[in-house]
Nucleic acid binder design. Sequence first.
DNA 1: AGCGCACTACGTACGCTGTACGTAACTAGG
DNA 2: CCTAGTTACGTACAGCGTACGTAGTGCGCT
Lengths: 234, 234
Amino acid sequence: MAGRAAVPEVIWARPERTGRGPRPAYTRADIAAAAVRIADAEGLDAVSMRRVAAELGCGTMSLYNYVPRKEDLHELMMDAVSGEHELWEPSGDWRADMFLVAHRTRALMHRHTWLPRLMSPVHGFSPNALRYLEHCLACLDSFEASYGTKMELIAMVNGVVTTYVTNEISTAERTRSLPWTEEQENAVRIAHLGRQVASGAYPRLAASFAEDAGPIDLEAVFERALTRVLDGFA
Amino acid sequence: MAGRAAVPEVIWARPERTGRGPRPAYTRADIAAAAVRIADAEGLDAVSMRRVAAELGCGTMSLYNYVPRKEDLHELMMDAVSGEHELWEPSGDWRADMFLVAHRTRALMHRHTWLPRLMSPVHGFSPNALRYLEHCLACLDSFEASYGTKMELIAMVNGVVTTYVTNEISTAERTRSLPWTEEQENAVRIAHLGRQVASGAYPRLAASFAEDAGPIDLEAVFERALTRVLDGFA
DNA sequence: AGCGCACTACGTACGCTGTACGTAACTAGG
DNA sequence: CCTAGTTACGTACAGCGTACGTAGTGCGCT
């Protein structure tokens, strides 16, 4: 009986198995996989302790033997999908490699749309997160700068990816649990915006609306943003 | 009796007062102010419908006369603090003006630490948000580019500010409702990270740790990031 | 002038959440 | 072997968003 710790704890520092007592019925990987399955299929809000326990086929409170707080379940989820990152031998062109890293991360987030929401706060240093970070640093071996600057570059790239993916998926994620579609939601918002702009109170915004025609290519917007950020470092 | 709409709705398109029926006891501004007061003092999670109603001194369900869903309460909050933005006559130097915009926004988010969390998803176009956007565009009058590019610049700057402030405040916000302090939490995390790095599995990360000495100046980090982003556009 | 209806107010209730706590079964270390 | 630490899990509590029903109010229309 550990009680609930009144002192902070990183789940990765706690051994998965202590030796004493009955064999645990599940591994951390099992639990993470179950949670990820639910989040992918039904959204992050569907990931409740009860739901995950049901998915595993155990009692709700049994989960707390593996994971002291729900937040730690989120850590497990993030680490699990971080493991999907396939790493490669750096090419020697750090710009190209960081481009690829960013695109892979973006793809990962599109595959697991709950990921950006969990990434916003600072998270613990999970094994796969460290593996990823080390890989980024390897990609930057050819970048002549201090480690401090390299870290800032990595943080910046990850931040941009998270920000843009969040924007890309936000309406779809929002309307997931709502009784109307993404398209309806967007239509209503755009209509309201159009009405406001037409009021004449926002001349430049109106001019901006008058200017561009075609629909925006989100991938192109992302790529431009990424290019600019990398330019800022070179 | 409007029922609950089965179709999307922007709260800013709904008139605050229709004329029919008893005078509402509160204005939207009252409600927003109450919610902001609670969020500032006790964090965003303390802003529940019951709590806000109690703060106003009315029954919980009365709030739903003003705000169809909790999400709309959040919109009210965002608009309210967006009104704190003081705008100025653009100087003619867009780079300097955007610098100032970014710093002001950062200061605003530090004053209302719940703001970054609400800003992550795309939000409706509230009056003060539009006012802010128009001001940014005015600051960019001296920037020779299409409105599309200007919009991308604004989005980028706001994204960077949000990302960095989120990182700056995340641990403090997290530990707000936890039985230990920010310092304790950080110490435990750093200790774990140190142990992992010492294992030798992450050589570059280890080198990075060996390199830098002094504590990091978050404001300086932010300023460098901002400079680089603006550089990317010039 | 007065009827009717849209509105405000709000108590109750439902289904859901995270998780504290207590108990029973089990197994490895001393 | 014994016992301490672990797993398993049912029950329970406080809190959440909000659907629904009812009572009272005052504007707009006839």
